[in-house]
Design a protein around this nucleic acid. Sequence first.
DNA 1: TGCCCTTGTTGGCACTCTGCCAATAGTAGG
DNA 2: CCTACTATTGGCAGAGTGCCAACAAGGGCA
Lengths: 207, 207
Amino acid sequence: MTTAAEPDDLAESARSRRRLAPDERREQLLVAAERLFARRPYAEVSTTEIAREAGVARGLLNHYFGDKRALYLEVVRRASLLPEFGEVPLAIGEMTERVDVAVRWFLGLITPERASYLTVRAAEGVGEDGDVLAILDEASDLAAGRVLEMVGGDPADPAARAVVRAYGELARGAVREWTRGALTREQAHLLLREALLTIVREVLPGL
Amino acid sequence: MTTAAEPDDLAESARSRRRLAPDERREQLLVAAERLFARRPYAEVSTTEIAREAGVARGLLNHYFGDKRALYLEVVRRASLLPEFGEVPLAIGEMTERVDVAVRWFLGLITPERASYLTVRAAEGVGEDGDVLAILDEASDLAAGRVLEMVGGDPADPAARAVVRAYGELARGAVREWTRGALTREQAHLLLREALLTIVREVLPGL
DNA sequence: TGCCCTTGTTGGCACTCTGCCAATAGTAGG
DNA sequence: CCTACTATTGGCAGAGTGCCAACAAGGGCA
């Protein structure tokens, strides 16, 4: 009985004296960090705590990520990208229809357990932090490109991308109001649909 | 010469062995903290540094604000509120005109040295931090009320306020794209004007 | 004018957190 | 089974933070 049977994938969170493959361990640490950083601001989460959550020695965090900040940036990067960004419904037909599909697609992505996407950027307060901004901007720009494709805009036009990136902020704000209960899903949908329609019809052509 | 002439307001940043009125000292510390927090994230700024910037002993920070976090929240509170929020131009006339005035007013507020307003919320990345969110939300809601007054909406309608709060995110995004050079001021203005117009005409009535 | 007392201000102690590194020990391959 | 590779650990040194008792600036009162 003392000989380890095969507790391979059970009690993963308990004692871990096991030697894992780097990728596996790295993933585990990221998940632990993600969980803690999501609930409390950066400075309030200690690496000791993260290590405990993952059931490893604190030094291992530095081994895998260098320092606390690098680990945090990694967490931000993961949270800022909606994995489903790729599965864009090829909307065809009337403009009204395409816009409606785009909005429905976006609203559908958020809700579930993708809540982390919402907490992104909803956090700290003041401060530049170019590293974080770069990550968030990249994700924002990626989403903007997708939306432009869906509504038939020109993804190559920098100004158009900028407008849609700004629209992304509206979308984030609308979803937040929705999840907070200040707006119903229908109301949020209405706002995003009309705004996007206006952008396509009135703003983009006027650039 | 050794007798202090009246170096009242000169070399304010140099040695300060002087005994200031609490309000004065507090203000000085806030300014110093604001300057540093604006350029680097919270965790990267040490209280030692802030104290040095203000030319006082580190312990004084704790005396005035309790702890580093409280000081930070104070800075966020100040940065989140546009002082000129009160001076709302009483827009009258056509709806198109009123919306245009509202947007021009908003865009006019931001640019100058009020840049701190932009860095608000542009910062960290992931994490809840209810304290910060509460501050930012309060400022956002205040601005939303003002805008509703200007365009003739009903500030008492929770849903309307929520929609305009979300619009505030679009505004913040548009200004950011503008200051970044991705949009001209005219383009940002166009976007914000058309979007607000659509909200007033199509969205608010449909709630 | 000169002392005194209020209180703004300082400096240092104790504790926690972080980064680093040498020592330890799983585990796969021979 | 044994060995070499390397994932993993534990502790050390330095920095940052909160706290508190002692100090002194400067206005008020005699």
